[in-house]
């Protein structure tokens, strides 16, 4: 089956997936896994957590598809579940509390020795992940949806169920923050 864009999935196919039709479920997955995994990775900062988030997200989507009311767009609904699952996973991990420390240590070691940093060569992707990890969850969600996913402010507001001006102010503060961090650690 050719991968379709999420907007092109028919209501009929969504209903079939909701009833447990494996082919319909797979078509839904094929249309959505790209952006779900991308957002999961942006929110988590590493592939292992992103995998876990994406997996949990799709289980929730498939199990709750029968409650999808076709009032909002399926894409918005899926984005929302992805972001919420990612936020919950981050909360859980923070309670277990070691990842944050690990990132801080990496940042410290990067700033300590520019020579060694060059040797280990933090790739541009790693740099971005380190930067993102200095943001609070709500700012990070806005940056991921805007800068990685390229969504409009209006769409972000719908996904996060916040006012569009809140999207603006979070983005502004996030970017100020990122610019500061970039300067501080010469990333």
């Amino acid at each position: 089956m050719k991968d379709m864009d999420i907007q092109d999935l028919s209501d009929e196919l969504i209903r079939m997936a909701a009833q447990g039709d494996a082919q319909a479920g797979e078509a839904l997955y094929a249309a959505a896994h790209g952006f779900v995994f991308h957002v999961a990775l942006g929110m988590a900062g590493n592939e292992d957590d992103a995998y876990e988030i994406a997996q949990e997200t799709f289980i929730k989507i498939l199990e709750n598809l029968d409650q999808f009311k076709f009032k909002s767009s399926l894409k918005t609904w899926i984005y929302r579940i992805t972001v919420n699952t990612a936020l919950n996973t981050r909360k859980k991990n923070r309670m277990l509390n070691h990842r944050r420390v690990a990132f801080d240590e990496t940042l410290e070691s990067l700033s300590e020795s520019p020579v060694e940093r060059h040797a280990t060569s933090a790739s541009s992707a790693q740099t971005v992940q380190l930067l993102l990890d200095t943001l609070g969850d709500d700012q990070r969600a806005c940056v991921v949806l805007r800068d990685m996913e390229g969504l409009r402010y209006e769409e972000i507001a719908q996904i996060l169920r916040i006012n569009i001006n809140t999207v603006r102010s979070r983005l502004k503060r996030a970017r100020e923050n990122l610019l500061l961090q970039r300067e501080k650690y010469a990333l």
Binding site: G25, E26, F37, E47, A50, Q55, F58, L62, V143
Partner: peptide
């Protein structure tokens, strides 16, 4: 900054992901 964020290379979801999801589902 925005360009740097935007140009993050896209990492594809691992092929095993759907199999895992389908099994659990």
């Amino acid at each position: 900054l925005v360009t740097q964020l935007r140009e993050m290379p896209a990492v594809a979801a691992p092929p095993a992901l759907w199999a895992d999801i389908r099994r659990q589902w």
